[in-house]
């Protein structure tokens, strides 16, 4: 099946420009004439993923594969890993510092929102090694 593969480096020190990867993916999806519902879900969930990588893991890589009927996104980082996935998936739970919250991030909605907007989600994490979040989206 034909697909477009894109890879983006998410800079861990850059709060301001964070969101460039999801922005670029959004543009590609628009070029493809994807349904707006899918574009919205991908844009929101992927941006949450990018922010997570910046806040918790000093950045990482976003690998994106776009098909005519869906999108697969792998967000890979080499951060500290997630100790308790179930807890991390709860709305409002966050390990972000107060400084980060002051900036308007770290509300504990990142992973729950990603789950809400994606059709498939898998988290692969190891303490001290890193985390890979897989997000799958299908045209509905």
């Amino acid at each position: 099946m034909t697909s477009i593969k894109q890879s983006y480096i998410v800079d861990g020190n850059d709060f301001i420009s964070c969101g460039h990867a999801s922005e670029a993916v959004k543009r590609t999806l628009k070029e493809l004439g994807m349904p707006s519902d899918l574009i919205r879900r991908v844009a929101i969930a992927m941006y949450e993923g990018e922010i997570n990588m910046v806040i918790h893991a000093e950045g990482g890589v976003a690998d994106v594969e776009i098909f005519s009927d869906g999108v697969k996104i792998y967000l890979r980082d080499h951060g500290k890993g997630i100790a308790d996935i179930e807890q991390a998936m709860q709305e409002g739970f966050s390990t972000a510092t107060d400084d980060i919250r002051e900036l308007g991030f770290g509300a504990g909605m990142g992973l729950p929102n990603m789950k809400k907007y994606a059709d498939e989600m898998e988290i692969d994490t190891e303490i001290g090694v890193g985390t890979t979040v897989y997000l799958g989206f299908k045209v509905r």
């Binding site: 034909t2 477009i4 628009k30 070029e31 004439g33 707006s36 005519s68």
Partner: peptide, 24 residues
């Protein structure tokens, strides 16, 4: 209000995908 996509490369998604790959 509804989204108005004026940036699609083709009305056909398969074709748009081909064009998008070429474009990139």
């Amino acid at each position: 209000y509804k989204v108005k996509n004026v940036y699609a490369l083709s009305d056909d998604r398969e074709e748009a995908l081909e064009l998008s790959m070429k474009m990139h």
